[in-house]
C-alpha cells in the first residue's frame, strides 16, 4: 500500500516536470523516424516483417527511455536529502523500491502504448495478426521492466543522476552484448551466455510474435533480481 503512495508521488513528479515528457517525446520521435524509414522508404518488407522490424526498433527506444526515466529514482532522493523522509517512515525498503519501480515502469508503459498507432497502420494496410501485435508489446513491456530495474539498481548506488545513467548504461550494454561474447566462446558456455543476454535470444521470439513462457520467466526473474539488489543496497546503507 505504501508502495502505491510512493508510486503516485513519483508519477506526479514525472508529469509535472519536463523530464518525463521530454524523455517520452524523444523516444517517440526516434520510434517514429525509424518506422517511417521502413514503412515509407523501404517498401520491400512484408507487413509481418515490418511489424517485427518495428518491435526491434522500439526495443532500442524502450531501453534508452527506460534508463533515462529510472536514473533519477533514488539518486535524486539522496542528492536532495529527501531519502530521509522515506528512510524514517514506517515502510520497508522493498516498498520504496517497488513504488519507485512502478512509477518509472508506468511511464515507460505509457510511452509504449503511445506507439500503438504504428502497428495499427501496418494492420490496416497489410496482413498481420492481433496476436503478433499483442506478443510484441508484451515483449517490449517485459524488456522495459527489466531495463527500469537495472536503472533503479544503478540509481541506488550513487547520488548523481548522470553517473547513475552511465552505470545503468554500462550494465545494460554488457547484458546486451553477451550474445556477441557467446559467439566467440565454445559450448556449453555460448548457450549459457546467449541465454543470459537481455535482448538477442530472449527478445527475438516476442518480435516474431511467438509467445514462449521461458522467455517471459527470464524477464520476470531478471527484473526481480535487480529490484532485490536495489533493496539490499538500501538496507546496507543503514549500516554504513
Amino acid at each position: 500500500m505504501r508502495a502505491l503512495t510512493i508510486a503516485r508521488r513519483e508519477l506526479y513528479a514525472y508529469l509535472r516536470s519536463p523530464l518525463g515528457a521530454g524523455i517520452i517525446a524523444g523516444a517517440l520521435l526516434l520510434d517514429g523516424v525509424l518506422f517511417y524509414q521502413h514503412f515509407s522508404v523501404d517498401q520491400k518488407l512484408l507487413s509481418a516483417q515490418l511489424l517485427t522490424q518495428f518491435f526491434y526498433d522500439s526495443s532500442a527506444a524502450t531501453m534508452i527511455a527506460g534508463l533515462l526515466l529510472s536514473m533519477r529514482l533514488l539518486a535524486e532522493e539522496r542528492q536532495t536529502g529527501t531519502i530521509t523522509l522515506l528512510n524514517t517512515a514506517p515502510i520497508k525498503d522493498r516498498d520504496i523500491v517497488v513504488g519507485k519501480f512502478l512509477s518509472a515502469f508506468g511511464m515507460l508503459t505509457l510511452m509504449n502504448v503511445l506507439t500503438i498507432y504504428m502497428p495499427i497502420m501496418i494492420y490496416l494496410r497489410g496482413k498481420v495478426s492481433v496476436g503478433h501485435v499483442a506478443v510484441g508489446y508484451l515483449g517490449m513491456i517485459l524488456l522495459g521492466a527489466a531495463v527500469v530495474s537495472i536503472g533503479l539498481f544503478a540509481s541506488s548506488l550513487v547520488r548523481s543522476q548522470v553517473i547513475a545513467a552511465i552505470v545503468g548504461a554500462v550494465i545494460l550494454a554488457s547484458l546486451v552484448l553477451l550474445w556477441a561474447v557467446a559467439r566467440a566462446v565454445d559450448p556449453p558456455f555460448n548457450t549459457f551466455l546467449s541465454g543470459l543476454a537481455i535482448h538477442h535470444e530472449n527478445y527475438r521470439p516476442f518480435m516474431n510474435g511467438t509467445l514462449q513462457f521461458d522467455r517471459v520467466a527470464y524477464y520476470l526473474m531478471f527484473t526481480y533480481f535487480f529490484l532485490l539488489s536495489a533493496t539490499k543496497v538500501l538496507e546496507a546503507r543503514r549500516w554504513r
Binding site: 508521488r9 506526479y12 513528479a13 509535472r16 516536470s17 536532495t80 536529502g81 529527501t82 531519502i83 530521509t84 523522509l85 524514517t88 517512515a89 514506517p90 515502510i91 520497508k92
Partner: peptide, 20 residues
C-alpha cells in the same frame, strides 16, 4: 518499523520536494 511509527524526525536539511 514500530520505532519509525512513533518518531517524527526533522533532519538538519529538511527533506522537502520542491515540486509539491
Amino acid at each position: 518499523d514500530e520505532v519509525r511509527a512513533k518518531v517524527g524526525y526533522l533532519p538538519d536539511r529538511p527533506p522537502l520536494y520542491d515540486d509539491m
